[in-house]
């Protein structure tokens, strides 16, 4: 079986700063993989390397068996298989919600106006913002914007969805709307690679949790093991800080 995503010896440096120090892992079709770790650990950079928004310094990225890091790859075509959802939503401010979802379908997939609008409305319906189709991003709440962004990515029929801290910029009461859409996608069998700070989501939805720190994967496995019973000191320390923020200064609790 071909892996949905495979990273081999991935390195990324910004100048002298080495952010990723050799990452190897695979995502199987239908899997939900959550990447957790302290800020600055390289999780977002890792995700951005998967669709080559960041060019890896060394190593290979395979998506559906095809190598994205190959020098002659048509990166625009390859990216169509990868939907991406950003922390800051990045909806196109000059377009309505509906046009945000149709523009790439029409310009990239060359779908007709009607066909694109149908796909868009189906996906907007799915994420629960169909009634906002005519609104502009500035008129929508953060949670609504992020759900439109998910619909926009879904409308390209991606094989894998990448989520880069999708709820980190949201007001606390809006996080749930976005997470429930993501959970629904996971239940439908979408392959997902999610960088997140939502431990509850990772614990309940992920098939595999990856803990990253200082540019390496420290620990990976089933959420019950990585979050419920971490083996490494750094993982314990991080989880303790995240799960008990008011007692962050105390030593890591014995688990």
């Amino acid at each position: 079986m071909t892996h949905a995503v495979q990273l081999v010896g991935l390195h990324k440096s910004f100048g002298d700063l080495e952010v990723l120090k050799g990452i190897d892992f695979t995502v199987e079709p239908g899997q939900v993989v959550c990447v957790i770790g302290p800020s600055g650990s390289g999780k977002s950079t890792l995700l951005r390397c998967v669709n080559l928004l960041e060019q890896p310094t060394a190593g290979q990225v395979f998506v559906g068996g095809a190598e994205l890091t190959h020098i002659d790859v048509d990166i625009d075509a390859a990216r169509r298989k990868l939907g991406m959802v950003f922390q800051q939503f990045n909806l196109f401010g000059h377009l309505s919600a509906l046009d945000n979802v149709t523009i790439a379908q029409r310009r990239v997939l060359k779908r007709g106006k009607r066909a694109a609008a149908e796909v868009a409305m189906r996906n907007l319906e799915k994420v629960g913002v169909a009634d906002k189709a005519k609104q502009y991003p500035a008129q929508l709440s953060g949670g609504q914007q992020q759900r439109v962004a998910i619909a926009r990515a879904l409308s390209m029929d991606p094989a894998v969805m990448l989520f880069d801290e999708p709820t980190s910029a949201l007001d606390p009461e809006l996080v749930g709307d976005v997470l429930s859409v993501m959970r629904q996608l996971a239940d439908e069998g979408m392959t997902m690679l999610v960088v997140t700070h939502e431990m509850q989501f990772a614990r309940e939805v992920a098939d595999v949790v990856l803990f990253m720190d200082e540019g390496v994967v420290v620990e990976q496995g089933a959420p019950a093991r990585v979050i419920g019973n971490p083996q490494h000191e750094r993982t314990k320390m991080f989880l303790h800080r995240v799960l008990n923020p008011t007692h962050a200064d105390e030593a890591a609790a014995p688990s």
């Binding site: 990216r79 790439a104 310009r107």
Partner: peptide, 25 residues
Amino acid sequence: RGQAEAARSLGMSQGRATFSIIIPQ
């Protein structure tokens, strides 16, 4: 910057992203 990144992540070429997304804004 996120606007260009979003456009590119949807499979738009550099030129397409510039003319459809960046310049209008």
